[in-house]
Design a protein around this nucleic acid. Structure first.
Lengths: 238, 238
DNA sequence: ACCTGAACACCGTTCAAGT
DNA sequence: ACCTGAACACCGTTCAAGT
C-alpha cells in the first residue's frame, strides 16, 4: 500500500530517467553494485519494468556511456588544431574523473556509441582542417588510442577499479611495500622520484594531472612533427 | 563410479595445474566462460576443491595474469636501451595476442602481480642504464602506460572482448555502417584510408601490427629526444 | 582432520499466469 | 493487451554435516 503510493508519486519511467539513475548508482556505489535489481529498487520499480526501456544490461551500459560522453564540454573555437584537440581531451578527462567506472566500461564494450562517434568525428575533422592527410589522421587516431577520450591508461590506476569515490581511501600508499621494494629496486627508485625537480619531496604519490599532460604532450608534439614533415607511411616515424 | 575412476586417474590438484587450466579455458571459451564451477568441471573436480589452492576468484585471476606475463620472452642483450625496450614490448604484445582476455583482466585488477613487477623493473633498469634520470624514467613509465605490456589500447579493439578466438568472426567489417558513415563523414574518410600509401587499397581494415609500432615509435622517439635534451620537469616537453 | 554436498545470497532474463 | 511474480539457469562463497 505505502509502496504503491510511493510508486505512483514518482515520475513515469523513461529511458533517460533509467540511464541517469544508473550513472548515479555507479558513481556512488561502484560499477559492481550496478545490477538490474539494484537499479530497479533505486527507481522504486520492479526489475522487469526496466526491460521495456532497455533491451538488456549491455544496452544499459551503452546508454550510460552515452550519458557520460555527452557531458564533455563542446569544443572551443581555436585557431590551432593542437590547442583545440588538447583542450577537448583534457575536458574529456575531467568528465571521466567524475565517473571513474566509465573508462573500463568503454573499453569492455565493443560497440561505439553515437556520442563517442560524434566526439571522435570532431577530433578527426579538427586534424583534417589542420592539414593532416586522411592517412596520417588515421594513424594518429590509432596512436592516441583511448587517451583521446581522456583515459589515464595507467597500468595500475586505483581510481578506475571499485567505484566508491572519495572518503573511503584517504591516501593510497605511494611506494611499494618494503619486501617488494627490495626485490624490485629500480621500481622502488622511481616510485620515490617526485613529479618535480625538488628531489627532497619523495613518496607522496604521483601528480596524475601532470603525468597525463606529460604523455599527451609527448604524443601531440611527435604528431605535430610528423605533420610538419609531410609524413607518409613509406617513411616510418624513425 | 566411472567418474571416481576418472578423478583418480588425474594428477593431483595443484595451484599450477589450476592456473594452467584456467588460462586454457579463458583462451578457448572466453573470459566470460571462466567460472569456478566451469573450471572445476574441466579439472574433473568439485568446485570447492579449488578453494584450497586459490583464496577466491580474484586471486585466481591474479595467478592467471602471472602465468601469461611469465610467457614474455626474456630480454635479449642489446647495446641500446631503445632497441632493448622496443623488442621486449613487441614480445609482450605477441603474448597478449595469444591471450586476448589478458589485457582487460590486467587493467581491471588493481594489484601488480610479482611477474608484472619483475617485468616493469627490467624496463626501468634498462632506462636507467641508458642514462635516464630517475625522475624522467618515472614520467616515461607513466607515459607508456599499459602500452609497455603490449596493450593495443585501441578505443575499439575487437580482439579484447569476448574470447572466442579464430573461426567464429572471419572478417569484421572494416568501415562504418552506411548510416553512421553519413553522420560522421570524417570518421568514414579515415576508416577508408589504408595503412599504406597505395590509396586505392581501401576498406580492408587496419594493420594492427603497423598501428601498434607506429604509436610505440612515436612515444620512443619523443622519449629519446627528451633524454638527449637532459629533460627535467621544470622544462615541460614543449 | 579432512572433504564436500547442500545452502545462501545473489545475478540476468524468460515466461506464463493474472489482471 | 499489458504488467509482473515466480521461475530458470546460472554465479561466488559459506558452512555444517559426513567420513
Amino acid at each position: 500500500m505505502a509502496e504503491q503510493a510511493e510508486t505512483l508519486r514518482r515520475a513515469p519511467l523513461s529511458r533517460g530517467r533509467i540511464l541517469r539513475a544508473a550513472v548515479a548508482l555507479a558513481d556512488e556505489a561502484g560499477i559492481e553494485s550496478l545490477s538490474m535489481r539494484n537499479l530497479a529498487q533505486d527507481l522504486g520499480v520492479v526489475p522487469m519494468a526496466l526491460y521495456k526501456h532497455v533491451a538488456n544490461k549491455d544496452e544499459l551500459l551503452d546508454g550510460m556511456i552515452d550519458v557520460v560522453v555527452s557531458e564533455i564540454d563542446p569544443p572551443l573555437p581555436d585557431a590551432s588544431w593542437k590547442h583545440a584537440v588538447r583542450g577537448r581531451i583534457l575536458a574529456a578527462r575531467q568528465v571521466l574523473l567524475r565517473h571513474p567506472w566509465a573508462a573500463l566500461a568503454i573499453e569492455s564494450r565493443n560497440m561505439a556509441t553515437p556520442a563517442i562517434l560524434a566526439y571522435l568525428d570532431w577530433v578527426v575533422a579538427t586534424l583534417r582542417a589542420g592539414g593532416f592527410s586522411a592517412n596520417l589522421a588515421h594513424h594518429v587516431m590509432h596512436a592516441m588510442g583511448s587517451r583521446v577520450l581522456g583515459f589515464s591508461q595507467e597500468l595500475f590506476d586505483e581510481s578506475r577499479r571499485a567505484g566508491r569515490s572519495g572518503t573511503t581511501n584517504p591516501e593510497p600508499p605511494a611506494g611499494l611495500p618494503p619486501e617488494a621494494a627490495a626485490r624490485f629496486p629500480h621500481l622502488a627508485e622511481i616510485a620515490m622520484a617526485a613529479s618535480h625537480d625538488d628531489e627532497s619531496v619523495v613518496g607522496q604519490g604521483c601528480d596524475d594531472q601532470f603525468e597525463f599532460e606529460f604523455a599527451l604532450d609527448l604524443l601531440l608534439d611527435g604528431i605535430e612533427r610528423l605533420q610538419q614533415q609531410d609524413w607518409t607511411s613509406s617513411r616510418r616515424p624513425r
